Amino acid sequence: MLYHIFYALRDVFTPFNVFQYITFRAGGAVLTSLIICFIIGPYVIRKLTELKVGQTVRTDGPATHQCKSGTPTMGGVIILISIVSSVLLWARLDNRFILWLIAGALWLGFLGFWDDYLKLKGKNTKGVSAKGKLFFQTVFAATLAAYLSAFPANPEYATLVNVPFLKSFFVNLSFLYIVFAMIIVVGSSNAVNLTDGLDGLAIGNIVIVAFTLAVFAYLAGTVPVANYLKIIPVSGAAEISVFLAAIVGSGLGFLWYNSYPAQVFMGDTGSLFLGGVLGMSSIFIKQELILLLLGGVFVAEAVSVMIQISYYKRTKQRFFRMAPLHHHFEMSGLSETKVTIRFWIIGILLAILSFASLKLR
């Protein structure tokens, strides 16, 4: 919005020319979303407490988590409001990627909100059924994949997937790319959701991933730089960095309240849409496999659940002490804060490795 208002007046007041720069607007998005979190956070937390919108804790989980029962959840509304408001202010609203990211945030945010609402209404850990949740995620992912099939991010590389660390090496998925894109969106949405089990764990890693993808988006959208680095250039992709910058700001703001001991949980209201938009961003900038590396913490959490379920069905025994993976380490004797910080450290190392892939080819 600010771009469309002030950049049009640059001939009247030359300093307004600064609104053309994505780095300037990305910085504005970080600060705005952070400030919005600080402003509305206490109010939302207070209202959630008054409404008794409290978390129901699994009885089969670590005993130390039982004291968290009743902590306000659905705090994802803080993140959603701050991100969307910031993006509407600082991003170019004529950019198709921005419009899709806003749509994805709202769709998956509402799905998560409805899931949290049903859990609270029933006073248990069950909300929208797994099949129902997967259905609505898949509907959106399929719509997005169909759109990209008709209007690809880069027509020359429409169905190609770049393999990190290999120079100009691509895998052509042909018609299967549609399915691949759907898996990325749905998988990332659910992986972040599964990671959100310890104070600050998910949101801390989301900030790391969002910042790294913001850099990749800026590089992919800057054609000369993209060509130099041998990554797929995508016209308009640099604008995605403004959206991702808003996630960084809101993530840091939410971490203020979500750090141990948490005053509020994001719930599915936050985790489903945050994971989804990260997956969407990686598809838009044609860095799908980088997300698997960069989001290794989320991938490990999701894989641990799949292994646990599969192993239990075959042997009637548990492979891990408890899934997702962060609970396994808790049950093994590590404190919650130690697990969280170590997972952050791993996330930072994976981000560094992802950046290294730009030159190690």
Rank of each mutant, 00 (worst) to 15 (best):
S82C: 06
G279M: 02
M331V: 14
G221L: 00
K119H: 14
N124P: 04
L252P: 06
V128K: 14
I183D: 15
T125N: 08
G197F: 01
G275R: 00
I35W: 03
I285R: 00
F319L: 06
I290H: 03
A237H: 00
Y3I: 07
C67F: 03
V53Q: 03
V225Q: 07
E50P: 08
D199T: 14
F319N: 05
V44S: 03
N154R: 08
N205P: 06
N227W: 12
T212C: 08
Y157P: 01
Y257W: 13
E156T: 14
F165A: 09
S271P: 07
V163R: 00
Y218A: 07
N258S: 11
N193L: 11
I285L: 02
A141E: 01
S282L: 10
L89S: 06
K123H: 12
A214T: 03
A150L: 15
Y7C: 09
V179W: 08
G75Q: 11
M280G: 01
F135W: 15
I35Y: 15
K121L: 15
G104S: 11
G70T: 06
Y157V: 10
V305T: 08
I45Y: 05
I203R: 01
A217W: 00
I79C: 04
Q308C: 14
L219V: 15
G127T: 02
L173M: 14
I79A: 02
L272S: 04
Q55D: 10
Y257F: 15
L353V: 10
W100L: 09
Y257A: 06
T159N: 10
V30M: 09
A214V: 04
Q20E: 10
L134C: 13
F136Q: 04
F19N: 02
V57F: 12
F110W: 15
Y260I: 04
V303A: 13
K316H: 13
Q308H: 14
P224A: 14
T269P: 02
I232M: 11
R342D: 06
D196E: 12
V209W: 00
E288C: 06
D116W: 08
A181Y: 14
I206V: 11
R92P: 11
T64K: 13
E301G: 14
A246F: 05
N227I: 06
L194D: 04
L148T: 04
M266S: 02
V339H: 01
